[in-house]
């Protein structure tokens, strides 16, 4: 057989390719599959959080803010535990970013609150002296796009088996269920219920009125998303 292979370079090349691919497959694929599995405590984004993520991407927050904490003492002191690949299991696409004009936001939900974000997004220098971050006043009036968020939820639940309406294990041993509406109206109702919780902690009367009237300003969705980053 080897003599035959030596006389037929094409099939020899095919054989070499097969052997190397097999080695690659058994070395790379199991480790890759294991590392990309969601970490315990990572849960899918709710409708409102996903709408907030779209606001985050739409305003290019990821151009200045990374979402990846590297394993250095100086970095974990400031931002919290270093990032694990499984924590991005439900990020499509992930928003690692490659530049930190502003600080990392991967665990910002642990150390900033709803009312702080509210003050900060309207006028960053009012809370962080000397901040060069621009203000985002339109987020207080623009409506969040719940339809698109729900469309994304439906898609990823169907094609990537993202566990909506299923128990997801949390770090303390409990489980959590992230709900996804069965109809669009249902999704709007779920998002509004979440928005009401956020708006209760906010100070801006226009935003509170809008949520009470059934509209969700972008800022509410964005804060829901930022609070979910833990």
């Amino acid at each position: 057989m080897f003599h035959w292979l030596e006389k037929h370079p094409f099939f020899f090349a095919v054989g070499v390719f097969l052997v190397i691919s097999f080695a690659g497959l058994i070395e790379v694929v199991p480790s890759f599959a294991d590392k990309s599995r969601p970490v315990i405590g990572t849960k899918p984004y709710s409708t409102l959080e996903l709408a907030g993520r779209h606001v985050y991407i739409k305003n290019s927050c990821n151009a200045c803010h990374s979402q990846l904490i590297r394993p250095f003492k100086s970095e974990t002191d400031r931002y919290g535990h270093y990032s694990l690949s499984g924590e991005y299991a439900y990020d499509r696409p992930f928003l690692w970013g490659s530049k930190r004009t502003g600080p990392d936001l991967h665990r910002v939900g642990n150390y900033r609150t709803t009312d702080w974000h509210e003050n900060h997004m309207l006028n960053p220098p009012s809370v962080v002296a000397g901040s060069i971050m621009p203000a985002y006043p339109w987020m207080f009036t623009n409506k969040a796009n719940v339809d698109t968020a729900y469309a994304e939820q439906l898609t990823i639940a169907q094609f990537f088996s993202v566990p909506y309406n299923k128990a997801v294990p949390m770090k303390d041993g409990s489980t959590k269920v992230v709900k996804m509406g069965s109809t669009l109206a249902d999704a709007h109702a779920l998002a509004l219920a979440e928005a009401k919780v956020i708006a209760a902690d906010m100070k801006n009367q226009d935003v509170k009125d809008a949520v009470a009237a059934g509209n969700i300003p972008e800022i509410v969705a964005l804060i829901a998303y930022l609070n979910s980053l833990k």
């Binding site: 002191d77 919290g80 642990n110 150390y111 900033r112 609150t113 709803t114 009312d115 702080w116 902690d201």
Partner: peptide, 11 residues
């Protein structure tokens, strides 16, 4: 009265 202060216990 003002709002919530996050716990900074781990930091």
């Amino acid at each position: 009265a003002i709002g919530r202060m996050p716990n900074l216990g781990d930091r």
